[in-house]
């Protein structure tokens, strides 16, 4: 019985860490611009697909991964310059539509550059499961959990202890005031898109050995990552991870103990309940209406 419980927990944490990693990207962009980037899932996809394709060209794995992150970062940067920058004064909803358009565009592009098949990225430290009190764990899960932990720590340091990070936060709170104290808000937006694309790519690469990668992989992962970011409280990287874990564990235990058919539905019911009782998510800052 305990072994089963542990197995469900392991599955929940693995999946939750995946959602959390994807959710981080949402948080970073939201922090800088109050925009929800619906193309975040596509960054995840590009990271995974690009590393698979670099690998198949015979480039060694570590280099392939670095190249994939660089490529995705560049895509994020380009997205900001060509699509977000010219629309900077648009309403939030119209910015959302732009990111949705970008997501369709990037998926279409990926189908042309790569293919419509699904691909595996070799696990970083082999496929032999680790046994734990009767439960089993894929070594790659440790990479995902560790990766999520390290990234969230780095982000925390970045936002709280670096000038650039603080500038991003300042831009989010009040762009005009930020500009007045000499922050180049345009530059800040570009950096945050590039950063969040890099985070998405890293998530996509860490996850690919478990979830595989294909041009549509970002659709569902993006959606679940969005859930993670919202449940945790938008704009809070720590919250995104916590939100991801909450969603992932809820899914795994529902599948294990209640009904696997309705596991996704149960996860969403929980999300809605969380929002009703904690309207700004688990760790979000309370929004106050400005007059």
């Amino acid at each position: 019985m305990f072994a089963d419980f542990l197995q469900f927990l392991i599955s929940g944490i693995t999946v939750g860490a995946i959602y959390g990693l994807v959710g981080l990207g949402f948080s970073v962009i939201y922090n800088a611009s109050n925009v929800i980037n619906f193309a975040q899932g596509e960054f995840v996809m590009i990271g995974g697909m690009a590393s698979v394709s670099f690998l198949s060209m015979g480039i060694p794995m570590p280099l392939a991964i670095v190249l994939a992150v660089v490529v995705t970062t560049f895509v994020g940067f380009a997205l900001e310059i060509f699509a977000i920058e010219p629309a900077r004064h648009n309403s939030v909803v119209s910015l959302i539509i732009i990111t949705i358009g970008a997501s369709i565009f990037l998926r279409g592009l990926a189908q042309i550059i790569w293919d419509r098949n699904y691909h595996n990225l070799p696990a970083f430290s082999g496929d032999d499961p680790i046994k734990l009190w009767g439960a089993a764990l894929q070594p790659q899960s440790l990479w995902v959990m560790g990766g999520a932990g390290i990234i969230v720590l780095l982000l925390w340091l970045f936002f709280n202890h670096s000038i650039l990070g603080k500038a991003i936060l300042a831009t989010s709170f009040n762009p005009l005031a930020a500009e007045l104290v000499g922050i180049d808000t345009r530059r800040i937006l570009q950096i945050s898109f590039a950063l969040s694309a890099a985070l998405g790519a890293i998530a996509g690469i860490l996850v690919a050995p478990i979830a595989l990668t294909y041009t549509n992989v970002g659709v569902m992962l993006g959606l679940k990552g969005f859930c993670a970011a919202i449940v945790g409280g938008l704009g809070n990287p720590m919250g995104a991870i916590a939100g991801g874990l909450a969603v992932g564990i809820a899914e795994a235990f529902t599948a294990g103990y209640i009904s696997s058919a309705y596991k996704d539905a149960v996860a969403f019911v929980i999300i809605i309940l969380v929002l009703l009782f904690l309207p700004s998510g688990l760790f979000g800052r309370k929004e106050i209406d400005k007059v």
Binding site: D4, Q7, F8, S11, A136, N216, V219, A255, S260
Partner: peptide, 20 residues
Amino acid sequence: DETHGKGDTDMTPQLTKLKN
């Protein structure tokens, strides 16, 4: 008789139930 959702990334909970 277990099922999983669209785009799921991990089916170990369902397989654990099957095992039992």
